[in-house]
């Protein structure tokens, strides 16, 4: 494991802004932190970057407990780099900025020049070596800040809202940089974002924060719905297609109608052939659209009007492997659906 957090809290001015019971982040992966403003994403990133100290709890990095006393953090900080939401560049040239981290590590000049130019090439800004940092646009500043981090070849790259406040063109470039850094340089990446599509496109794992706590609802398989009489939840699917789902009275305890979030637990959903529909179970017609191997399980994405992920064990998959384009039934058993 890259990071393991246990009972980590962070209190600021008497207010608990982070309260995480347990969180494990895997090495070599891209992990997205999702949540609204004030959800605790930045605080968590600061702790993962060893720039902030938890008020209580344990953090371990690569299997070793982190000692947050100032003197012990330098070596850890040199393996992890955080790129801020609004990164600040030091005054002077782009080269000076990229040189800084390498100089403090005592890297030889020749090596520095090579790594600086490689990092700039990686972010597609090779010609900016001698440009003044203060003259760059917001998108260029973010890319240079990424290059400054990548030049250090860190084990972990942490990015706070890497695509916030930049135009679409720069957003695409930045996402590609992160993908390449993970794929080609094997750098573990943890980034925060508001954009669910970006998180789903880029990340292997999504972590959702709400009010400083890990949300029980992973963002995968969470869909907003309206409660209708019946009781039925109605999800607005693609192409004006409505997905209607009958709810049990137990699922509706404490809900008084209106807008809710439905969480389809990917571990508990099942796929059945069309012929195996049985009474007393909720079934939704679905089309298999994607298959992906995920360690010990197979992730099958089906379309019910909105995409839903279903995890199958390799055993289950072996018995009856679904094919892309196949029409199936998505069985939503009682425990597989949570209404929030």
């Amino acid at each position: 494991m890259l990071y393991e957090l246990g009972q980590v809290t962070r209190v600021h001015n008497g207010r608990k802004i982070l309260d995480i019971d347990g969180l494990a982040i895997k090495r070599g992966r891209i992990t997205a932190l999702i949540g609204a403003n004030g959800a605790g994403k930045t605080t968590l990133l600061q702790i993962l970057a060893f720039l902030d100290t938890p008020t209580s709890g344990q953090v371990s990095f690569l299997g070793e407990a982190v000692d947050f006393r100032a003197g012990a953090l330098l070596e850890l900080r040199r393996r992890v780099v955080l790129v801020d939401q609004y990164p600040i560049l030091f005054t002077g040239s782009v080269q000076r900025n990229l040189d800084f981290g390498l100089k403090v590590r005592g890297v030889e000049r020749k090596d520095r020049e090579q790594r600086v130019s490689q990092a700039l090439e990686m972010v597609g800004m090779g010609e900016f070596l001698h440009a003044r940092a203060e003259k760059l646009s917001g998108g260029e500043t973010k890319r240079i800040a990424l290059a400054r981090a990548l030049a250090l070849r860190p084990a972990v790259l942490l990015c706070d809202e890497p695509t916030a406040n930049v135009d679409f063109e720069h957003q695409e470039v930045i996402l590609n940089i992160l993908e390449r850094a993970n794929g080609e340089e094997n750098i573990s990446i943890v980034f925060s974002t508001h954009a669910l599509e970006q998180a789903e496109r880029l990340a292997d794992t999504l972590v959702t924060l709400k009010g400083g706590r890990l949300s029980r609802l992973s963002r995968v398989n969470v869909w907003p719905a309206m409660l209708d009489d019946g009781p039925v939840a109605v999800i607005a699917g693609r192409g004006r297609r409505e997905v209607r789902l009958a709810l049990t009275p137990e699922a509706l305890v404490g809900k008084s109608g209106g807008r809710v979030n439905l969480f389809f637990d990917p571990e508990k959903l099942r796929l059945l052939p069309l012929s195996e529909a049985s009474d007393g179970q909720r079934h939704l017609p679905a089309t298999v659209v994607q298959l992906a191997a995920d360690e010990q399980r197979i992730k099958v994405t089906v379309d019910i009007g909105v995409p839903i992920d279903v995890y199958l064990s390799t055993g289950e998959y072996g018995k009856r492997p679904p094919c892309i384009g196949e029409q199936v039934l998505l069985q939503v058993a009682a425990g597989a659906l949570t209404v929030e």
Partner: peptide
Amino acid sequence: LDRRYQATALTLGADRLQ
């Protein structure tokens, strides 16, 4: 001075003196 200068220097691997 903007606090981010300190945080940036630290995350780039600087010790307190640097």
